Simulated scan of single mutants.
Amino acid sequence: MINYVVAAVFTYAHEFAVLRLILEQRHIAHFFQNETMLSVIPFHSYALGGIRLMVHPDDLEQVKEIINDLKHNKDLHIV
C-alpha cells in the first residue's frame, strides 16, 4: 500500500458509500484513509485533509472513470 495514490478526496463517509460498493464489486484494491478518524471526530474533516480514496496506480484511470460516471448519473451519484 506504500505505492497507492490518491484518487479522490471526500469530506464525509456518506459521500462515497455507493462508490465503495462499486469498487468492491469490481475487485479494485482500495482503502479510505482517515475514514475511522473522521467517524470519531467528523468535524475535523478539513483539518485532516478529508477522507482520501487510495488506489493502486494501475487502477487509477478505471477509478476516475467510475467516479466520473457517478457524477453524471442523475439516478445514482456521489454527493
Rank of each mutant, 00 (worst) to 15 (best):
L23Y: 10
D69E: 08
M37F: 10
H72Y: 04
Y46K: 06
L23K: 04
H27Y: 09
A17D: 14
H72C: 04
G49L: 10
N3G: 07
D58E: 14
R26D: 10
Q33E: 15
E35W: 07
I28S: 11
V5Q: 08
V40T: 12
Q62P: 02
L48M: 15
M1E: 07
G50M: 04
L23D: 13
I51L: 02
M54Y: 06
F16E: 08
A17N: 13
V63H: 00
F31V: 06
T11V: 07
L19K: 06
V63P: 01
R52H: 06
I67A: 00
N73T: 06
F32G: 12
A47F: 09
H77Y: 12
K71I: 10
R52K: 15
R52Y: 01
T36H: 13
S45C: 12
V63W: 02
H77I: 03
V18I: 15
N3F: 05
H27M: 09
T11S: 05
D58S: 11
F32L: 12
A47I: 11
K64M: 04
N73A: 01
I28M: 08
P42Q: 14
E35N: 11
D59E: 10
I2Q: 13
A7P: 00
P57Q: 11
I67M: 02
Y46L: 00
H14M: 05
V40I: 15
V55K: 09
H77E: 10
M1K: 14
F16W: 10
K64S: 06
I41T: 13
I66D: 02
M1R: 09
K64F: 00
D59F: 05
D58F: 12
Q25W: 09
N68W: 01
Q25D: 15
E24W: 05
G49N: 06
D59G: 05
A13S: 14
P42G: 09
V6I: 08
V9L: 02
V9G: 05
E35Y: 06
E61C: 04
E61T: 07
